[in-house]
Design a protein around this nucleic acid. Structure first.
Lengths: 218, 218
DNA sequence: TAAAAAGTTTAGACAAATCTAAAAATAAAT
DNA sequence: ATTTATTTTTAGATTTGTCTAAACTTTTTA
């Protein structure tokens, strides 16, 4: 089934809002896809006719399993492209979202398979959000912030909680990105700061405030 | 000026047909963009209003300079993506065209600049067609078929005249692609066949028929 | 629990890009 | 040069996604 860019955007938005709020109000969805409530109603009827959502007028609506599968596939494409833009083209993670928003609608399964292979099957996008696999499964990986991670084990940075400009600025200085491999050398009890050792770099100390925001997998 | 995918496709098609035939009949353009003559008329009026083409009813039409610039920019994007798909993702050159057809409409100058850098400013796409630079200039490079190239100089395969399946099959066997570096070792007068040496491979002999179809830059 | 507020849907309109069928202009052919 | 054929344009309809304004549900609140 071929879907329009607009339909795909609605599906993605419903998926996102479904995750955040248990029930999705049409007005919120309208804001998310930057349109008006009346337009949302039209689209809901269309998506219902395509069995992408469960829908009864004036009632709540949710994605069907088929709808969720489609949403996860779009999210997969989006995040793989974001990964590509940052890790291959060297773009900044704060400028890739709108581009990936366009690329995610390029529809070609072989392309995405090849891209995934080329990127070596990444699990997290540059914002630290998990990348669903080709079957729509999000492999749940044990993540913990640096402070709570075991000492002297190789950790891989998988997500950053605080995505503010100031935080990103600091991470840039420390040369820490999603995917960076590092070791927790020791913790200082006085202020909760920690010493870390990043591959090929001299050990440094980062504050507790920063360490708490950096999540890693083992 | 933001252009729709449809407008971009018309511009690209006009550019292509303008190159092939001196004057572009609307019916041919209709076939090229897979639509009907009546739709073409509508679009021509629109493109005229945007100063992308010169147009008078019932008369021939041509791209303005602005229109040509736009066309070259779309072609640039198309060919850079084709290059990426073949040389980075390892796709076959006969399957990348429809994908690049979609990717070319992703509009972000920084993206294309970064992509160009990442690919190291390629001059030819996987089909051997030249890639315009960011100003729309197609750098004219001296090309000659292998038979007419100087002996023992490093040549870079830049285009293949015959793009039939059988030819591509043969090139695959010889491990010859656009971008392959090779040397012409010697020519055999008896049948016009030539001995070539491809980087890291043992020297081989290719027939005159094949050699005549492979164009290289020095 | 009845009135007010908030949220959702219908009805009718619009813009973009397309279509068919018919009319108009140009080109070709006798 | 007039008829025929071809090409191009108009006119009116269709589809997709959107909009506003009004009508209708549902929820809140007093």
């Amino acid at each position: 089934m071929k879907l329009s860019t607009s339909e795909e955007n609605y599906i993605k938005a419903i998926f996102k809002l479904q995750d955040l709020h248990n029930t999705v109000p049409a007005t919120l969805l309208a804001a998310e896809v930057k349109t008006k409530a009346a337009s949302v109603t039209d689209m809901l009827k269309k998506l219902y006719s395509k069995k992408i959502i469960h829908y009864k007028p004036y009632k709540n609506f949710t994605l069907t399993n088929a709808g969720k599968k489609i949403a996860l596939d779009i999210i997969r494409k989006h995040r793989l492209w974001e990964y590509f833009l940052v890790h291959k083209l060297g773009m900044n993670w704060d400028e890739v979202h709108p581009i990936a928003e366009e690329m995610e609608h390029v529809n070609n399964p072989l392309l995405i398979q090849k891209l995934d292979e080329y990127l070596e099957h990444p699990c997290f996008d540059p914002h630290g959000d998990p990348i669903p696999d080709k079957n729509g499964n999000i492999r749940m990986v044990e993540q913990s912030d640096i402070c709570s991670s075991p000492i002297k084990k190789t950790l891989t940075v998988s997500s950053i909680k605080d995505q503010s400009i100031t935080m990103m600025d600091l991470l840039k200085h420390y040369q820490i990105k999603i995917g960076t491999k590092l070791k927790l050398v020791r913790k200082f009890d006085f202020d909760g700061s920690v010493e870390i050792k990043i591959e090929k770099l001299a050990p440094t100390i980062i504050s507790n405030q920063v360490a708490k925001n950096i999540f890693c997998t083992q």
